[in-house]
Amino acid sequence: MSAWFIALLQALLCVALAPLLVGWVRRVKARLQNRRGAPLLQPYADLHKLMIKETRVAHTASPLFRVAPYIVFVAIWLACATVPLIALDLPTAGIADIIVLVGLLALGRFFLALAGMDVGTAFGGMGASREMLISALAEPALLMAVFTLAMTAHSTSLVGVMEHHLTDGFLLRPSYLFAFGALVLVALAECGRIPVDNPSTHLELTMVHEAMLLEYTGRHLALMEWAAWIKLLLYGVLIVNVFLPWGIATVFTPAALALGLIAVVVKLALLGAALALGETLMAKMRLFRVPGFLNLALLLGLLGLLSHVILEVGA
């Protein structure tokens, strides 16, 4: 029973931490660009403001437009809740393995794209079309990286992968290195970060994610934004906890859980700072450069798999 309780706690923690991560990235980015930037907790205030504001819906919108934010939010939250954040081996991890997780994210994206097309303006369709292009190319790369991990651990469950990594100790696995690279590139593309998409742009012709949200206001917008932040957190946790699982709680004692929390927060803070640095150094690319970028991710995934088969297994 306590395991289910901790699982619930962890699920709530995902939702609570996501705005903090975004605030942190924005803050570091602002500092790197010699701006003062908004306070660390600004995203929470933004969410609150959006929640209490009046919600407006276009005349041309269908019921799907109003349902979509809930589905997007819930699907991504559920996906995030199945990722081990502070403790391994929670019962929620059995609900979904990595492939189901990818599927849940795809469910969210499906409704996001549909919602973009619902009002019937040009921007929504444009955003949806581009989003589906990016996701179509990112998905094989993501699964290739995932398969590399799964072939090593003989399991597609995240818990299995992390446990395998923990028991193996530190090995110089080229496959992990490549899978890491692939996962980082995919995460940048899927979360709509520079160089694939710019989360802070409102320049109409370059938008991808924002174009789909253009018609949303009030609580609907809050849910959509929050969902996007949770997704960023999810990919962050996936990257740090799969490749550097050390520190995560393997037993459910308060001390271990506290250590797990501290470890993941520190790891995420470092990753967030790296993201901010990367976004400061890089420029956004043209849309039709994105396939090349994701091709690189796919190549990394493939090389990860091949180096696993050729160099690591022997036999």
């Binding site: 110089l172 080229p174 290195l177 090389l303 180096s307 160099l311 690591e312 022997g314």
Partner: peptide
């Protein structure tokens, strides 16, 4: 299997994989 190699050999493997990349 990589898990039973000494660290230096693992390093060689890693470097070779990077050269391939």
């Amino acid at each position: 299997s990589l898990a039973v190699m000494p660290l230096l050999q693992q390093f060689v493997v890693l470097l070779a994989a990077l050269a391939l990349f």
